[in-house]
Design a protein around this nucleic acid. Sequence first.
DNA 1: GACAATTTAATTGTGTGCAATATAATTTCT
DNA 2: AGAAATTATATTGCACACAATTAAATTGTC
Lengths: 159, 159
Amino acid sequence: MNAKSSLLDLDRQLCFALYAASLAMTKAYKPILAELGLTYPQYLVMLALWQHGSQRVGELGERLGLDSGTLTPLAKRLQALGLIERERSAVDERQVEITLTAAGQQLRARAEPIPLCVMQLTGCQLPQLESLTRELKDLRHQLASAYPAEANLFPPLKT
Amino acid sequence: MNAKSSLLDLDRQLCFALYAASLAMTKAYKPILAELGLTYPQYLVMLALWQHGSQRVGELGERLGLDSGTLTPLAKRLQALGLIERERSAVDERQVEITLTAAGQQLRARAEPIPLCVMQLTGCQLPQLESLTRELKDLRHQLASAYPAEANLFPPLKT
DNA sequence: GACAATTTAATTGTGTGCAATATAATTTCT
DNA sequence: AGAAATTATATTGCACACAATTAAATTGTC
């Protein structure tokens, strides 16, 4: 084994701390969300819809950092649950607008107590959680800008 | 929509900040790990093996917070890549010992520059990253202890 | 106005995560 | 010792994530 510490040590990796904390958070939410009949990513989609109202698949994806390969089947499940509707935009047939149903809007009331419930699980005070949340948000955007999704790094070549 | 801010606002959720930052980190690692032929969870398993040497599936799972349902197929893929071996313990036939092959040990050299590379992507200084890593580690363990994997919350009933 | 380029979402295939179950080996209890 | 309980891993099924591809609609260009 390695007696000496190394930059590759598992517990020194920010990436692993993030990964493990995120999985632990998901597990903590699981029994809570089970009462609403939602998975964790489904809950995040509902949060986005409750806050910002109807939006296109692309908007949701940008907000959450997910693509249509993830969102399309997830949205179909939320639709099957009767929480949302999906319809092609009349203005631009490419776009699909996601809208809360009455049941989807009503579910919000049952989700209201969740943030305080989870805050207690963390054993932290609100200011500390807000600070950590901000740091993670900054980190996310820093990483996203460092790797701009290939995007236009390689402008199309005329062949 | 909601003009007022709410405790359910997406950007106020620590859970979402964690989730999004973790996904962003995974995406940042992807092109780097592609050169090693590894996925992100496979890389974490290799880190654990490089640091702690041969260990059982259960030890790996406890370290990484994963169960056999995740680790067994993942380990089979690492084995197919020729990086590890999996063999039943002679002492206890239930246990499966995971051991690095020579190729698996040699891969470590190629992984050595990764931490510095990623540190630059974050745009942060080492002390800040170490602080964040510690906070996340604490959060993980706090959450894990708050939900002790059911464990022995319900001691077996004599029927 | 036609046609190429772009945009948007859906589809396909691979690799996780995890609950539930199965299987086999070990330990405990009597 | 033998049955029951426990432990360790594997298997199965479902739900993400995401790369790559497809399909359809729109925009841009000439």
